[in-house]
Amino acid sequence: MDKDTNQLKPWVRFWVRNFDLIIFFLLIRSILWNSLSFLGNHPFFRLFIIGLFMIFVEATFIFFFGKTPGKWIGNITVKNYNGNSLNFIQALRRTLLAWITGMFLNIPFLSFIAMWLSRNNLIKKGITYWDEVCKTNVEHSFLPIWRYVIIIIIGILFNLIIYISIIDYLLSLT
């Protein structure tokens, strides 16, 4: 598939993905964290369950709106090859594949490797693995500069908070 590299916008997709991670994580964590107390003092189990909910929430947004909050800011829409909206199973499958192959389940540090490999694949082939398998298209519209700024600032802040929290937690184990 030959696409104009300028239309692929891998960095917009990266920052949009991070924006969605922030929004979904904060929303779901605020709702579920205390209700998951039966897992004891094991934050990794809680985070795993929150991650599963995040996958479901992302797929639900794509099913209903064709985009997530981050994709809305990034002026990105996901459709099938026929130009139609995805049904829920298509949206869930695409989201699962993006999380597994594109982010290695958002495991710290490994996720950046997965995202880098996905970026390279997107530039080389013009499509990500999950979009190819699910037969979906990612459509980009004009993106004003203020939306770039919002996405990047929030993405950087969230990643810093997550990595500092992980390092703090690991140091507390020693």
Rank of each mutant, 00 (worst) to 15 (best):
F64S: 13
I150S: 05
R94N: 06
F64I: 04
N84A: 05
D20P: 06
F64T: 02
L52T: 08
T68D: 14
I150H: 01
I164Y: 07
T5A: 12
K3N: 11
K67Q: 15
W11Y: 03
P69N: 04
R46K: 15
R17P: 02
N84T: 06
I166D: 00
L86A: 00
V12T: 13
R93K: 10
I73N: 04
W99S: 13
L86F: 00
P69A: 03
W33V: 14
D2T: 11
V138G: 01
I113H: 01
I100F: 13
N120K: 14
F53C: 10
L86W: 01
S111H: 03
H42K: 15
K79T: 13
L143C: 11
D20A: 08
F38D: 06
N18A: 05
L157T: 10
L170C: 08
P69F: 07
G66F: 14
G102S: 06
L32R: 12
F14C: 11
L8F: 03
R147W: 01
N82C: 00
K3C: 12
K124F: 08
H140K: 10
G155N: 10
T174G: 06
T174K: 14
I152Q: 04
I152S: 04
I152Y: 05
F65W: 09
K124R: 10
V78Q: 00
H140Y: 12
N84Q: 14
L92N: 06
W99L: 07
W72P: 02
I89G: 05
S30Y: 12
D4I: 15
W130P: 03
D131F: 10
N87Y: 04
T77K: 10
A91K: 13
I76E: 03
F44E: 14
G155W: 09
R13K: 10
S85H: 09
N121I: 02
S172C: 09
I100T: 10
L160T: 05
N41P: 15
P144F: 15
M103R: 15
F104R: 12
E58I: 04
I150G: 03
W146Q: 12
A114K: 06
F104N: 12
P144S: 11
I55A: 14
L36P: 14
S37Q: 15
S141L: 12
L96R: 08
I123H: 05
Y129Q: 01
S141R: 14
S118W: 02
S35P: 03
I161L: 14
T128N: 07
F44H: 10
H140R: 08
W11E: 04
T60K: 02
T68L: 02
G66V: 06
W146M: 07
L173F: 02
I89L: 11
N6H: 09
F109T: 07
W146C: 09
I127L: 02
D131Q: 06
L105P: 00
G102W: 09
F24H: 07
L171P: 00
F65G: 05
N6L: 14
S30H: 12
I22V: 13
L8V: 07
S172Q: 11
I127A: 00
M54A: 12
L171R: 13
T60N: 09
I23M: 09
I164G: 00
L96K: 15
N82L: 06
I113G: 02
I156Q: 05
F112C: 02
R94C: 08
L27G: 00
D2N: 13
L110N: 04
I127P: 01
